[in-house]
Design a protein around this nucleic acid. Structure first.
Length: 578
DNA sequence: GCCGTTTTCGGCCCGACTGTTTTCAGTCG
């Protein structure tokens, strides 16, 4: 069984134990173990082989045994029995806001509720309101939760969340009495999807700020309103939390609510080892038990990190994946800035399924300050996208050459193609056609159901083709919609490095593929990256910023990104590949 | 269930907010 599936089972065990009313620390141990396994960089099989699983922090003897059994057999008796002992409807009930393990257990034990439907009727009949610890409001809240379950559970693309957050942040900053305001959470960490929005404000007068926040346009429900914290829910189901703190606590609150949880745990451990207890409220020296936490004069996150002997860690690196060690050793990456990109590759025009012409795309690229743009329309196997056959590819090539030769644009257009990788790994165009282009992006758009071995072999065959410059969206995933196809990305990365083929970060907000979690290690081993907005209209070029976010989360430096080279540098890369 | 340079037992982050209470439990982050 693969590591990811084992991680999922450990998480599932934690949920089931919660519903059984188990010791909360045992539950957390499973969650911690799942996380430790997930972030382990070495190959699971090798770690087990070497007998080193027990030395991973957070994995003790009980988990070692379970993980090894799952890895070897794919089955676990303990998990089977546990799952059989809990009605599946109870797990779903946890998705309802306000219901946790204990309340679900109580509803089950005392009312026999085993499904969402049964819960609904129990609320309507008044049974729930009569239960000790519940009341009329609880029953009503549960009914609303059931009603809006799908919308509430939904995560949101970073790009969409950011568009909601920007005006709120602007509004907060414009309020009198607001000294500082920032968005925190996964939005600030530039995660590919966002569960809810978090805002942190510094002010000595919270009441009017809370009033403004809870009465904004679009607020459908106020789920909490206090002097330090308020929460609202928008019509889209997106929830936003606001915390107002005194200025002296701002840096601590911002750091705490930016997370991630794993990063915070590591920071608190570091604080403890240096004699301090760190929280969102500030710092308390350990020997002053019970004293109010102080700020030690720390006004910024930078100062907070420096207090603990660390370089400032950018929010997008705070995932508990070695950033604290790197910050201590002065080895944080020099992250790429959006301004460093000189152009983008992999964009479409009206020749296939785009909505803008060569001229319009070039003008839009110029408006963004780019020196060049690559145009890569679909090939003929992508029939639904009006893909180009060899003759049409050559016509488009002529048009691009003519555009460049006319010399009327400050932007150079590279002539490329997004060529389909056929199910057997052959390419969709003649070698003689591909050889005439400046570059070629190879992508899978069909036969997603191949086995992992077949899909891996298919893509590697394409990578080994001499005409291949880049691999497009290597898993084909669509965030919040569709899982990627099964493929062994480590083998694909190995092949790309060996053949000097680039892998793209497809910057479309719904793709962000290849995933940021894989980039740090791949780039260290020599993989080159290209950030590609996959624009199908001029507005789509702006997505390159989402791609830069992913490059930053992946610890990439400018030298590892083709887009950071000037026009001549890109030309050199393309010609050396041939 | 995990962990340990005070510990192999007894801790494990903790505070805000809500809804239920009449001093607090549960949820959430």
């Amino acid at each position: 069984m693969h590591k990811a599936d084992i991680v999922e089972i450990l998480e599932s065990i934690a949920v089931l134990l919660e519903l059984k009313g188990e010791n909360p620390f045992k539950i957390r141990a499973y969650q911690t173990g799942a996380r430790a396994l997930e972030t382990m960089e070495e190959e699971l099989g090798e770690v087990i082989e070497a007998g080193k699983l027990a030395s991973v922090k957070g994995i003790g003897s009980a988990l070692v045994e379970k993980i090894e059994t799952l890895h070897a057999t794919g089955e676990l008796e303990y998990y089977k029995k546990l799952r059989a002992s809990v009605a599946p409807g109870l797990i779903e009930m946890l998705e309802i806001p306000g219901l946790g393990g204990k309340k679900v257990k109580k509803l089950h034990d005392e009312l026999g509720v085993e499904s969402i439907e049964a819960l609904k009727s129990a609320c309507e009949s008044g049974e729930v309101a009569g239960l000790k610890g519940f009341g009329a409001k609880s029953a009503e809240k549960i009914l609303t939760g059931i009603e809006n379950r799908a919308a509430y559970a939904q995560r949101h693309l970073w790009w969409d969340a950011q568009e909601v957050a920007a005006p709120i942040l602007e509004g907060l900053r414009a309020l009198s009495g607001v000294e500082r305001a920032e968005a925190a959470g996964s939005l600030r960490r530039l995660r590919e999807t966002v569960g809810d929005l978090d805002f942190i404000v510094a002010s000595g007068e919270p009441a009017p700020i809370m009033d403004w926040f809870t009465s904004q346009a679009g607020v459908q429900e106020v789920t909490a309103k206090g002097t330090t914290k308020s929460s609202v829910r928008f019509e889209s189901g997106l929830q936003a939390d606001l915390r107002v703190v005194p200025a002296a606590q701002f840096a601590f609150a911002l750091h705490h609510f930016t997370g991630s949880k794993e990063h915070n745990v590591a920071m608190r451990q570091r604080a403890l080892s240096r004699g301090y207890s760190l929280s969102e409220w500030g710092l308390a020296a350990k020997d002053t038990e019970g004293a109010e936490p102080g700020s030690e004069g720390i006004e910024t996150e930078k100062a907070l990190f420096e207090f603990f002997g660390l370089a400032e860690i950018p929010p997008e690196l705070r995932e508990g994946l070695g950033e604290i060690d790197a910050a201590e050793a002065g080895k944080l990456p020099r992250l790429v800035d959006a301004d460093a990109l000189r152009g983008v590759f992999h964009n479409h025009t009206t020749a296939s399924d785009g909505r803008a012409s060569i001229e319009e795309m070039a003008a839009a690229a110029e408006a963004l300050g780019f020196d060049y743009i690559g145009l890569a329309d679909h090939s003929k196997a992508s029939f639904q996208a009006n893909g180009l056959d060899d003759a049409r590819v050559l016509e488009q090539l002529e048009r691009i050459r003519a555009f460049n030769e006319a010399g009327e644009s400050a932007v150079h257009v590279f002539a490329g193609i997004e060529c389909d990788i056929l199910p057997d790994g052959r390419l969709d165009l003649e070698d003689s056609t591909l050889a005439q282009l400046d570059y070629a992006v190879m992508s899978v758009h069909s036969s997603f159901g191949l086995s992992e071995a077949d899909m891996t072999a298919r893509v590697i065959r394409a990578i080994e083709h001499p005409a291949t410059t880049m691999l497009g969206h290597p898993t084909g995933r669509l965030l919040l919609r569709r899982e990627g196809y099964r493929i062994d990305l480590q083998k694909v990365i190995d092949a790309a490095i060996a053949n000097r083929v680039i892998i793209e970060i497809n910057a479309h907000p719904r793709r962000l593929d290849m995933d940021w979690r894989l980039w740090r290690r791949a780039a260290e081993r020599g993989l080159m990256c290209a950030i590609n907005p996959d624009a199908h209209a001029t507005e789509g070029l702006a997505y390159y910023r989402a791609g830069v976010n992913i490059a930053r989360k992946g610890w990439l430096e400018p030298e590892q990104i083709l887009n950071c080279r000037d026009c001549a540098g890109v030309q050199r890369w393309f010609s050396e590949r041939k």
